[in-house]
Simulated scan of single mutants.
Amino acid sequence: MRPDDRNGDKPIDERPLRVLVIAGSDRRQYNCPGVDSKARAFMLRMADRLPAEWEIDYEDLGNVYGRSIIRSCNACVSTSMALCCWPCNCYGPDDRREPDLMWDLDLYARLDLADAWAIIGPVNWYAPSSNLKLMFDRLVCMSGGNPREELIDHKDPELAMRLERSPEWRELSRNHLEGRTAAFWCYGDGGGAEVGEDGRPLVLRHPAWFDPAREPFADDRDAYGPLVWQCRYSGIEVPDELWRHQEFGQDRTYSENQAEHLADQPGVYAAFDGWVDAFARFVGANGRVPAGRHRAHGHQRPAHRWQDLKLAWRDRRMRLGVPRAGSSPAAQQEQGLNHDTGWNTHRSEGEKLRDPRTDRRPDEKR
């Protein structure tokens, strides 16, 4: 059945089981690829095959021209775990300056509402697609993120560092989506007719530099290992049988291995349907997952204009080379580590290096 977000407010025994299926390819026909992805076709096939009494939510992360994109994680957690807020407050919905697809699609709430996730995507250069990696990077906050941004004045690094070292932090930091199930179906194009009999790309000018025996994975499903282990680290179960890889399109060009060609390739749909059925059995047996204490569903973003003004003053001080006393930027400046002052923060290091008017680093010999 179609998803009804209002069911997320009901007691657990009064709502249907809910699944979120995500197509993780970067391709969409409404951008320069001009053709929809196989991940999208698999996503829709899965939605039709799952039990009719379940709520089936799904989303295609492919890049649509003119639409917002998934913004990258700013790595707040590396400053302090308490600076990484749940759900992410680095960005927000309908933001003109930094439009973000995670918020515009309400993905934090939809991931929260689902009892299980099914992730479908290609292997791109021995790794997940860019959009899947971006999405999971932005989910670092589900693993211990700060659910109370008012304690750090929205985004104050010094307050976050202090909170992280306080006894209160132990109660706040938790796995916010723990208990759910995630499954991964990744696939590859089998070389796209680019690989020779010796396992090397045909167009290499220096074949000795490429040793096929040293390619990263014995099992190509391991390309999605970082996403799988992030889930497991965050208390989300990924059963080994629900983490699979399928290769198809061997000896075909990429143009001959589109979604419309899947039915012509023996075993592809049978393998995929087997994974979907295994997912349905496992998730059905697990049942519905209790909501966490701090939910993304129904989350009300607090106003933070005054806090932003204070952070803007902090920013101006750093540009002028006068960071807060006792802060990490002050310590780094004192030790001569980063040389990161100046009014124009958009100016790149490459521009500075090429500008004869720019002062050299203090420790550089003249």
Results as ranks from 00 to 15, higher is better:
residue 326 G to D: 12
residue 345 T to N: 01
residue 302 P to I: 00
residue 350 G to D: 12
residue 291 A to S: 01
residue 329 P to L: 08
residue 307 Q to N: 11
residue 342 G to S: 14
residue 324 R to K: 05
residue 260 E to S: 11
residue 318 M to L: 15
residue 315 D to V: 10
residue 328 S to Y: 09
residue 305 R to K: 12
residue 351 E to C: 04
residue 293 R to A: 13
residue 307 Q to F: 08
residue 336 G to R: 07
residue 280 A to V: 05
residue 305 R to P: 02
residue 324 R to L: 07
residue 307 Q to A: 15
residue 334 E to A: 14
residue 344 N to Q: 10
residue 361 R to S: 03
residue 337 L to S: 10
residue 295 R to L: 03
residue 267 G to L: 05
residue 356 P to M: 06
residue 285 A to S: 09
residue 316 R to D: 14
residue 261 H to E: 08
residue 321 G to R: 06
residue 356 P to F: 09
residue 298 G to E: 01
residue 335 Q to T: 04
residue 351 E to D: 13
residue 350 G to Y: 15
residue 310 K to Y: 11
residue 264 D to T: 12
residue 319 R to G: 09
residue 319 R to L: 07
residue 261 H to T: 03
residue 269 Y to R: 00
residue 341 T to F: 11
residue 326 G to Q: 10
residue 273 D to I: 05
residue 294 H to V: 02
residue 264 D to R: 12
residue 363 D to F: 04
residue 259 A to I: 02
residue 276 V to Q: 07
residue 352 K to C: 06
residue 259 A to Q: 07
residue 298 G to N: 00
residue 293 R to F: 05
residue 359 D to L: 08
residue 276 V to I: 15
residue 291 A to C: 01
residue 259 A to N: 01
residue 359 D to C: 02
residue 264 D to E: 15
residue 310 K to M: 14
residue 307 Q to Y: 09
residue 294 H to E: 02
residue 285 A to N: 09
residue 322 V to W: 11
residue 354 R to E: 06
residue 313 W to D: 10
residue 341 T to L: 08
residue 317 R to A: 14
residue 337 L to K: 15
residue 356 P to R: 08
residue 275 W to S: 03
residue 320 L to A: 13
residue 259 A to D: 06
residue 347 R to L: 11
residue 316 R to E: 15
residue 359 D to I: 01
residue 307 Q to D: 14
residue 364 E to N: 00
residue 262 L to H: 10
residue 312 A to P: 04
residue 297 H to D: 04
residue 289 V to D: 04
residue 319 R to C: 12
residue 276 V to Y: 05
residue 273 D to S: 13
residue 287 G to H: 03
residue 281 R to K: 07
residue 349 E to F: 09
residue 348 S to L: 04
residue 350 G to P: 03
residue 357 R to T: 13
residue 354 R to Q: 05
residue 344 N to M: 13
residue 320 L to I: 06
